[in-house]
Simulated scan of single mutants.
Amino acid sequence: MKKQHILLVDDERDLRRVVRLALEAFGFIVTEAANAREAGIRLRDGTKFNAVITDVIMPGSGSGVDVACAALQIQPKCVVIVVSASPLSQIRGLPSRAHFLHKPYRIQDLMGLLRNGV
């Protein structure tokens, strides 16, 4: 079986590292991006992602909602998981196909969404 490829987008380097290591331990291939601009480059470079996990609030231009919308437009078959410490009710413009995970989250919760969607 081919390994699943995930794009992990978060401006917090240490959090990206922890989540990447956990996902790799479960057998995923993980590509990291530190912001929406980097995520857009990765989404358009020809790499096929099975899932995109993105934080909502990041520095610079673009948010996790922008990443989610771009991911579903560029790679419509990918699963999109948006994570945030803000409540879902405060996140505007989230695509209906995107899943939401409240921070702080447990890796088991993230894995549950990935297993159901990927």
Rank of each mutant, 00 (worst) to 15 (best):
A25E: 09
R92K: 13
D109Y: 01
C69D: 10
D11I: 13
A70I: 05
A36R: 03
A36T: 09
L88T: 03
R115E: 14
L8W: 04
V80C: 04
S63I: 10
Y105P: 00
H99W: 07
D55A: 15
A34W: 04
D14M: 12
F49G: 02
T47H: 01
T31W: 03
H99G: 01
S86Q: 12
L110Q: 04
H102R: 10
L7W: 06
I29T: 06
L43H: 02
G46S: 00
I74D: 03
R13F: 14
G62A: 15
Q73N: 12
G64E: 09
N35W: 12
K2N: 10
P87H: 10
D55Q: 13
P104C: 04
R42T: 01
M58P: 15
E24Q: 15
L8T: 01
Q90I: 02
C69Q: 15
R37I: 15
S63E: 11
P59C: 12
R20C: 02
R92D: 09
G93S: 09
A71P: 03
V56M: 14
R16S: 14
V67C: 11
P95H: 06
V30C: 08
A25M: 07
G46L: 01
S89M: 06
I74A: 07
Q75W: 01
L23E: 01
A22N: 05
G40P: 11
G112P: 01
V79S: 09
V67E: 08
L15R: 05
C78H: 00
E32N: 11
Q90K: 11
F26G: 06
G64D: 11
V118N: 02
S63A: 12
L101H: 04
E24R: 12
M1K: 11
A33Q: 08
D14H: 12
E12T: 14
Q90P: 01
G40F: 11
K2Y: 05
V56E: 11
G93F: 06
Q73K: 15
M1C: 08
A34E: 15
D55Y: 10
A85F: 03
R97Q: 14
R106L: 04
G46P: 00
G62S: 14
G62C: 13
I107S: 03
G112E: 12
G64K: 11
A98V: 03
P104K: 06
A39T: 08
S96A: 14
F100V: 05
Q75S: 04
I107Q: 04
G60C: 09
V82P: 03
F26P: 02
R97L: 10
H102T: 07
Q108N: 07
S61C: 11
I53D: 03
L94W: 08
A36M: 11
G27I: 04
D109V: 01
Q90H: 09
V52Q: 09
V65P: 02
R16Y: 07
D109A: 06
S61F: 14
E32Y: 08
G60E: 05
R37Q: 15
K48L: 09
P76R: 01
K103I: 06
M1V: 12
F28A: 08
V56K: 14
R20W: 01
T31Q: 07
G40A: 13
R17T: 13
R20I: 02
C69H: 13
A22Y: 00
P87D: 15
A22S: 09
A70W: 10
